[in-house]
Amino acid sequence: MTAIRTRRRIPMTLMARREARHGYLFILPWIIGFLAFTAIPMAATFVFTFLNISLNQQEPIAFVGLDNYRRLLGDEQAWSSLGVTFRFALLWLPVVIVVPFLLALAVNSKSIRGSSLMRVLLFMPYVVPFVASALIWQNMLVDNGWVNRALGWIGISPPSWLNDPTWVIPGLVMMGFWGLGAGIIINLAGLRGIPTELYDAARLDGAGWWRQLRHVTIPMMSPVLFYTMILAVVEVMQYFLVPLVLFNGTGDPAGATRFFNLYLYQTFFTYQEMSYGSTLAWLLFVITLVVTLLLFRVSRHWVHYAGER
């Protein structure tokens, strides 16, 4: 740490300056891309939120102050769709973070036969086009589909997954199970990276399976769990494509799948209200950012970076 600090105070040598010049040269294309496709559009969208741009209106574009924000505050549909997204997130986040970890633990076990075949199998749905997998699961979840038949065999009277507003969210979560492959692989990679000496030491100290998990595996895996958590939050806030494909964006059954992002998408592309859509988009970004920052803040207490310098 101190070594780096003193190095910075020394005036740059010719070589260091040449190195820095190369650095800027290498990232220049990306900086141009960042300005063109992120920074400037972001600023533009922010300006839109104070205007009244809408493609199906004749009024001239004008500055409307906080009108869009006022409309947002009174917009029942926006808040109820945000509620749908949050309800889904509440159910989905624990699944997408914990299940891949547990499955990776199971598959990582050397005593299971065919675990390499298993890895391929668990990962495969990830490469299935998502439109295809949505269609497959729609077929699996219809009233007389395979899922309900399997439930019938074990004596459970199955719900109508895709028609019942209370069961459609769990149904979507179940579909999501199939796409957990990438998470499993990332968790497996993390587990492989834990030095075996740590387990040897724990065993010498008399730690059993549970205490090894609690005091070695989980702390060592915390950066991986944190990484999957952040990605999951970003993704869950933007979730809408599966309901869009399954229900053609109608929000069926009874508005239970009108996710916030679906509402946002329709405001933009169905109703073509650019200014109001931009306001909704900024709300989504701010919520994502706040949640992510909170997670980063909390992460200091539980995420452990073994290689931290």
């Binding site: 820095a20 650095g23 496709f37 559009p41 946002l264 933009f268 931009s278 992510t292």
Partner: peptide, 29 residues
């Protein structure tokens, strides 16, 4: 692998891009 001033900021911008919902920039683009 290259040392230059502003490298940390550039990396933070990469992370910001990862967090950004595509809709925020969709219309201007």
């Amino acid at each position: 692998r290259i040392r230059f001033r502003g490298r940390k900021t550039a990396f933070l911008l990469v992370i910001l891009m990862m967090l950004l919902p595509p809709q925020v920039v969709a219309v201007p683009i």
